[in-house]
Every structure is written in C-alpha cells, then in structure tokens.
Nucleic acid binder design. Structure first.
Lengths: 226, 226
DNA sequence: CGAGTACTTGAGTGGAGTCAAGAGTGGTGG
DNA sequence: CCACCACTCTTGACTCCACTCAAGTACTCG
C-alpha cells in the first residue's frame, strides 16, 4: 500500500567511540561523513547536539515503513533535545557534518547558554508550525515552492540577482519531508521548470530561482492580522 | 477553491484591560470565556501564557483563508513563546479558560522556572513532531484515531474499562487541525462508530472508546528502533 | 419555540498516489 | 579511461482517497 522507506542506517555505523572520547564540560566536537546516524529513536537521550557545519534530518518511521522527515537542521541549530529519557526520532547526516555534543545536564552551565537553547527551541517550534501549515493545507506545488524558498533563505549563492539553491538531499527525502511521493516532487519541480519559475543549475540538485517574488507568490504566504 | 475559514475573532474581543492590570513579577492570572482571542499574529510578543484550566488552540491563517490549527494547549502547557518580536500565530480559547500571563523577560527569574519552560518547549516540539507524522503520512482514519487517542490520554472519564472523551472543539476545528475537511472528519467518525471502534456518548461531542487497543491499532503507531 | 449554527450524508470530481518502464548519474574496479 | 552496476530521477497511464458541492437533520441558546 505504501512505499517502504529505506530502514534507518545500521546502528553500527553510528559515530563510533566519539561519545566516550571524554572531555568534560565543553561540547565535544566531532565530524561524521554523509548518511550516518547521529542518534536513533530509543537511544538514551543523555546528550544533545549542535550542528557546526553540514546538515542533518530528523525523522520518524511508522510500523509499516512510512517515514516522515520532521525537520532539517542546519548550522547553528540544535537537535536531540527531548523531555523524555529516550530519543523519539532518528537523526542522520545529509552530508559531511561537524557536530558538537553536550551532556543534557550541561544545560545548567550558564545563563547565556540556556538562553541560547531557549531561543533555538522557540525557533524550531516556529519552524514546525510553518511546516504543519505546509503539510496541513498546502497543495503539492505550494509545498515544493515553500520548501525551495526556505532553503534559499538560509543558504544560496546570489549572482547578478539570481539565486542558486543546492539541495543537499534526495527527492525521496524531500518527498518524505513534504508529505508527498517522490514522483509528485519530480513532476512538480519539472512543471515549475517548464513554466520558468525555477530552472536547473549544474545537476538536478541545483535549483536556480530567477525571480524570488514569483516563487513566493506560487508558495502562498500567510495573512497578517495586526 | 478552498473553504474560507471563519476570520479570527475580532481584536476588540481580546482580554480587555487584563494585560494592564499590573502586578509585578509573578504571572498575572485571568479568565477568558469561550471563543476569545488570547493573542493575534502580529501582536507584540512581550508576554507569554500558561494554561491553568480550560483549553486553547494555536493556529495560522493563509492569505486565501485556509486555516491550520497547529496546536491545542491544555492545562500546564505554555503558549505564545516566540523568538521574534511579534507573535506569528493566533491563539483562541476553546472553552472558558484560566490563564497566567508572564512578561517575556521574567524568563530569567529562576532556574527552576526556566527549566520548566525548557521542558515544556521540548514537550511541545515532540508533540509537533507527532503531529507532522499525522499530517504527512497518515490516512484520514488514522489521523482521527490518533487524535481521539491523544485526547483520551490527557483527559477522559474512565468507568468500568470504558473511556469517554469529550471534544472541546467543533468538527471544523478538528478538520483544520488534522488537515482534512469537516465532511471527511464527520464521515470518518461515523464510519468508526458503524464499526464499533467508537460510540457516541451524550451529544456528538462525547466519544466513547470501548477498546483503546483497537483504536490504537487503527491509529497506526511508530516503529521502535533501539 | 424559533433562528442560527453545527453536524451529517450523498453524489460526483480531481489531485496526488500507485505501478511500471526507462533515462540519467556517480562510484568502482579492471 | 571507460565499462559496468547500482542508485536516483523522470515520465506516463491508471486508480482512489479525500475534496467539493449540495441538501437535509440535529443541536443550542436566546
């Protein structure tokens, strides 16, 4: 009935030995290659992570294999903070990624640190609200445009008024994030390209946005009530 | 193309005078009737709120009137915390509700308070992840079952093994939360009732769950990878 | 008790999913 | 360097779940 998502990356491929690599109070900095598990649902949530460079995805998997990517995390973001004892989601790297790992109880370290964490959690909550709007009431085309727009806001090369966005993830991952199938994502991007709303850069993972306004119009924005 | 959601409740119906009602450091406690605005998207986010009793919904509205209810908040939850200067969502009461209002800068008050806020934000983030799973990859029936199950976990009368859940919101609000139409919500509940997975209590807003296991099976749960 | 709102049910449609086949891309090893 | 293989991406044809439109019924509250 539903396409099986690829199972989570094998536990043995998780960052081996790093967590034990000691150091006391400051975050432990370490690097992972592409497609490695940072943590798995069910792991003890005694540590959380800050993305220094690279990118990760946080996702959940249902019994029958359906997968929902709930967040992407880029440099500056934190992930793996949870009120419970165990992680409820999985987290994989999308590209070579440098992380900083903190013990959960380091949270009490300093006011400045804690305020940063609160700000980050607020930002993530707000991003999840945006994402819920996409998933709950936008069409396939609006979701894809909103997604490209969001990526272009964080990371893009701007050359003579044209933005180039590089997608660090496969069509399947985008589909699992947007609540669509990979075929629908393909078709939608192809259609946007046909109409000139976007064009392809070098390779299918580079999207060029000639007119951000136009893409924004196609993405459908939120009403303002002041 | 899309059904117009009712516009947000008029600003003049917001809690009049309460914010100015002074008091210094402790939260200001106040009560609102049903269907009142707690805050609006665009309002200054200088205060945030704790639900003491009752219930509220947090939602966003798109240009063309589509509405997405992103969260419900019940006693113990906080709402209105945002990293930005203005609120990005609207918040209305679903029933007579007692709230406690805090100045944003009161956040620095005490460690215990701050830790409570962090825990709450983590819990809300986790709830949003669950919600994204529903919106992104569950069928109408699974969403409705997941929703009833979640409500039954927080609030329900248990009498001789049978759970009764009271829905404090209209079918339209449930639909806007689950990313469905109100007709689909109606049909789905009717169908569950026909099959005996749920039955109606007194009035259409009281759902009786004879067998929580069975409802859980219909809701579709998450895989565990330890 | 009556008016307005909330809810239910039916019939028909369409957007995104499913199934399937083929093209492009990148990494590896001879 | 290029041939091969695996994986990712694209496109087409058909299907189906949830949406739309529409009519009618049940609450709720003044």
């Amino acid at each position: 009935m539903f396409e099986q998502a690829s199972a989570p990356i094998d536990s043995s491929r998780r960052h081996p030995g790093f967590a034990q690599a000691a150091i006391g109070e400051l975050g432990i900095r370490f690097k992972l290659p592409k497609n490695r598990a940072v943590f798995r649902a069910g792991d003890d949530a005694d540590r959380f992570f800050e993305i220094v460079s690279g990118a990760v995805m946080i996702y959940r998997i249902l019994d029958d294999g359906r997968r929902q990517v709930v967040e992407f995390a880029f440099p500056g973001a934190i992930c793996g903070m949870t009120a419970g004892e165990q992680h409820e989601s999985c987290c994989d790297t999308l590209m070579p990624t440098v992380l900083r790992s903190f013990k959960r109880n380091e949270l009490g370290r300093s006011d400045a640190f804690r305020m940063r964490i609160v700000k980050q959690l607020e930002a993530q909550l707000s991003a999840m609200h945006d994402h819920a709007v996409s998933l709950g009431c936008k069409t396939a085309e609006e979701r894809v445009c909103t997604f490209i727009l969001r990526l272009s806001a964080l990371e893009c090369d701007v050359a003579h008024g044209v933005k180039q966005v590089s997608l660090p993830m496969s069509r399947k991952v985008i589909a699992d994030y947007l609540g669509l199938t990979l075929e629908t994502v393909c078709r939608t991007i192809a259609d946007l390209a046909r109409r000139g709303v976007v064009t392809f850069g070098e390779g299918k993972r580079h999207i060029v946005v000639p007119d951000v306004e136009r893409l924004g119009g196609t993405a459908c924005s939120e009403a303002q009530y002041a």
